[in-house]
C-alpha cells in the first residue's frame, strides 16, 4: 500500500531507506536544478577532484529547465524534463553523496543499481504540470553556469513539492510494477 511522507532536505539514508516505489512524498527545503549540460560540468568537476557549486551530501537534483519568471515571482513554470538523458551522469552523483533525483520517465539499469548501492531515490514529478509545480517553489537563485540560460544550476526552496517514488533503494521500479498490473495480453 502506498504511503505519504513529508521529507525535509538534506535527505539522510534513514529517510531514503524507508521509501518504497509508489509512495508519495511532499518535499520541503532546498533542492538543486541541473539538466544535461550542467550535469556534464558537475561530473567533470567531480572527476577532476574540484569543488562543486553546492554540497552534494544528501542533496536532491531536479531535472528541470524552467520558464523565465514574471516580474516579482521567483520562477516560472517548472515541471520535470525526461530523465534518461541524465542516466550517464546520475550514478556518479549518487556515489558522491547525492540521495535524490526528480524527473520523469524511465532510468537505465545502472541508475537503478546505483540507487540500491548508495541508498538513492529516483522521484517522479508530474510532467506537464509546470504551472502547478512552479507554485511549490518559493525561491530560486542561479548559483552556477548562468550562460546555460534555462539549463543553469539553480538553488530552489520548495514547499510541499509533490513527487512519487519511482525507483527505491530495494531495486523496485514503479513503471514496471504499474505497467505489469494494467497490461492486457491477448
Amino acid at each position: 500500500m502506498s504511503k505519504t511522507y513529508n521529507l525535509t532536505t538534506p535527505l539522510t539514508k534513514e529517510d531514503t531507506q524507508k521509501l518504497k516505489a509508489g509512495d508519495i512524498v511532499l518535499l520541503n527545503g532546498t533542492i538543486y536544478t541541473a539538466r544535461d549540460a550542467a550535469h556534464k560540468k558537475l561530473v567533470d568537476l567531480i572527476e577532476a577532484g574540484e569543488e562543486l557549486p553546492f554540497d552534494l551530501i544528501g542533496s536532491i537534483i531536479y531535472f528541470v529547465g524552467p520558464t523565465p519568471p514574471k516580474p516579482g515571482e521567483p520562477i516560472g513554470s517548472a515541471g520535470p524534463t525526461t530523465s534518461y538523458r541524465m542516466d550517464s551522469y546520475s550514478p556518479t552523483m549518487l556515489k558522491n553523496g547525492s540521495l535524490g533525483m526528480i524527473g520523469k520517465g524511465k532510468r537505465n539499469q545502472a541508475v537503478k543499481d546505483a540507487c540500491k548501492e548508495y541508498s538513492g531515490i529516483y522521484f517522479g514529478a508530474t510532467g506537464g504540470a509546470g504551472a502547478l509545480l512552479g507554485k511549490k517553489i518559493t525561491s530560486a537563485e542561479v548559483i552556477a553556469y548562468p550562460e546555460l540560460g534555462p539549463e543553469a544550476v539553480r538553488k530552489l526552496t520548495v514547499k510541499d513539492f509533490p513527487v512519487t517514488v519511482i525507483n527505491d533503494t530495494f531495486g523496485n521500479d514503479l513503471y514496471q510494477i504499474g505497467r505489469a498490473k494494467y497490461e492486457v495480453k491477448d
Binding site: V64, G65, P66, T67, G76, S77, A78, G79, T81, G127, G128, A129, G130, A131, G134, P150
Partner: peptide
C-alpha cells in the same frame, strides 16, 4: 496566465 508546461 502561467505557462502550462515549462517546455513551451
Amino acid at each position: 496566465k502561467r505557462p502550462l508546461c515549462q517546455d513551451t
